[in-house]
Amino acid sequence: MRQVLVLEKVTKEFRTYHHYHAGLKALVLDPGQIVRHRERGRFLAINEVSFAVYGGETFGILGRNGAGKSTLLGLIAGVLRPTAGKISVHGRISPLLELGVGFTQELTGVENILINGVLLGLRRKEIEAKLDDIISFSGLGSFIDQPLKTYSSGMQIRLGFAIAIHVQPDILLVDEVLAVGDAEFQEKCFARITDLQRAGVTIVLVSHNLNTVETLCDRAVWIDKGRIVALGSPQEVVARYQSEIAHPLATQESASVSV
């Protein structure tokens, strides 16, 4: 199997920018704080993480809130730049956006498809050619010409989902979106994801729902405090995650946060 996404010792360090957010006044009155903050205000969100994702597999990223999952996804999507290490991507990446992101509530479904499709990296002509497919896939019918504010949240997710998969990504990034919506809709999402899996799309799925990871993923990684704790089959990783969340590790190194 071909590697489509490779992370080599990827590290992401954030500077905390609170000194700027305190505003101009604080900056003028106490310029020394910049230097102090530069030294103290560092936060290691991702610490030397390495793994590879193979073409066609579904790869789960598991972890608690604040473990670094979303940072990792941002790095993979190319929105964040790693402080150190290297990320190689082969193919077109498309994030499945959370509910409401990139949508304009005042505009119609069709108008939003155009905007979102282009923002996701397609040419305008490409997305126009796929318009009918997207509309029929979304199952929104005549609602597609109504402003988005008249949609239920389930309908908006359906639209977002329809756009994201018609971008024909080689790698689809999914961040927690599956947690929204009713049971029926979630089932639909799972069905679509299974379709995509069959079509050979690589999926990177971020979740803290253990069940999702176990049923959908081929492999999974558990991230905690910016480091890989476990990497392997979803059953193994989930089992370790469960047992160690119940009995917290005594060996958490202090390396990840230096405040």
């Binding site: 941002g74 929105v79 994030p95 956006l97 409401g100 992101v101 996701l120």
Partner: peptide
Amino acid sequence: ALIKRLPF
């Protein structure tokens, strides 16, 4: 929200 998620 867009800037955080899409590399445009």
